[in-house]
């Protein structure tokens, strides 16, 4: 495989992996604090439509990204209110958020279907992207792609190298103890949930402003669920979230290449590969039960009653 073939392949994998990585990074922080928000799909769609509409109305990509992030946060705040303040079941609240988000995004976006938009610009000058070999892979991306790398690195640093990260993990692992020491469990979790919403919103904006620059109903097509699965896959470790997103993206792209190359296997089976590979890798890395228990937030999905 020469680099003329390899470079576009890598670019395609990056494009597939980026929205998954953005959303999974946010949800990782949410889950590390002990909250399971299954509403990623709904938050992504709301981020996608608000980013698109804002960009169309104002012409400003900065405002579009801000809008997408804030919309994601607003959606997650709704979830947070239900699950953290009213102590509603998190699994069901997250699913309800997805139903709500799918409907609301369609309602908001009804008049914006079938309109083109200039995509989010590449961050670096074109000259850099024309550098031989590494140019396109390193310098031909937009802000959100770089953000996806920065965010996962930042989240790793935050979780494992800062006091605030330690508190967040403590809240996720043993909320009663954290409460007893004097940390505000609900506040920490709410903030973590908002961060997750913001990142999901940006992941949606990546769909409507970069990946396929347009708005169409339900355009996330299940990517929120994949992002959710990636965190379990990664056993709640930032490095593995990154690897997982790229592994999934790579297999999704490579199966298309295999088809194009005329591989004689029914396309349905090739289409299964990303999902089967995810299971297989999870099985391999999950065998060490102790290490998973170290990383999985012990209180995930459980409601916290301050005086219980």
């Amino acid at each position: 495989m020469d680099h003329a073939y390899l470079t576009p392949l890598i670019l395609a994998i990056i494009a597939t992996a980026t929205p998954l990585l953005l959303a999974a990074t946010g949800e990782l922080v949410t889950e590390k604090s002990g909250v399971l928000n299954l509403g990623i799909e709904g938050m992504m769609l709301m981020g996608a439509v608000s980013g698109f509409v804002t960009a169309k109305l104002t012409g400003s990509m900065v405002l579009a990204l801000v809008a997408a992030g804030l919309t994601g946060m607003a959606m997650s705040a709704l979830f947070g209110f239900l699950a953290l303040v009213l102590l509603a079941n998190q699994v069901a609240s997250g699913l309800a958020l997805t139903i709500f988000g799918v409907g609301l995004s369609a309602l908001v976006g009804a008049n914006w279907v079938g309109q083109p938009i200039d995509p989010l610009p590449v961050l670096f000058p074109a000259a850099l992207a024309e550098l031989p070999l590494v140019g396109p892979v390193l310098f031909a991306h937009d802000f959100l792609t770089y953000l996806s790398f920065g965010a996962i690195a930042g989240v790793w640093w935050f979780l494992y190298r800062t006091k605030a990260g330690l508190i967040l993990r403590a809240v996720g692992d043993a909320h009663d103890s954290a409460h007893a020491i004097g940390y505000n469990v609900v506040k920490v979790r709410f903030l973590a949930t908002l961060f997750g919403g913001c990142m999901s919103g940006l992941a949606g904006a990546y769909l409507s402003l970069v990946y396929t620059p347009m708005w169409a109903e339900n355009m996330s097509a299940g990517r929120g669920w994949i992002a959710l699965a990636l965190i379990v896959f990664a056993t709640w470790r930032p490095g593995r979230v990154l690897i997982g997103a790229y592994l999934f993206g790579a297999i999704a792209i490579l199966q298309l290449h295999a088809q194009g190359a005329g591989l004689d296997i029914p396309a349905q089976f090739l289409n299964m590969l990303p999902y089967l590979a995810t299971i297989l890798v999870l099985v391999i890395i999950s065998r060490d039960a102790v290490r998973i228990r170290l990383n999985a937030p012990a209180c995930i999905g459980k409601a916290f009653h301050p005086a219980a």
Binding site: A96, I99, F100, G103, L104, A106
Partner: peptide
């Protein structure tokens, strides 16, 4: 879309 929002 409206019915979805209402269901939510």
């Amino acid at each position: 879309a409206v019915t979805g929002v209402f269901q939510g």
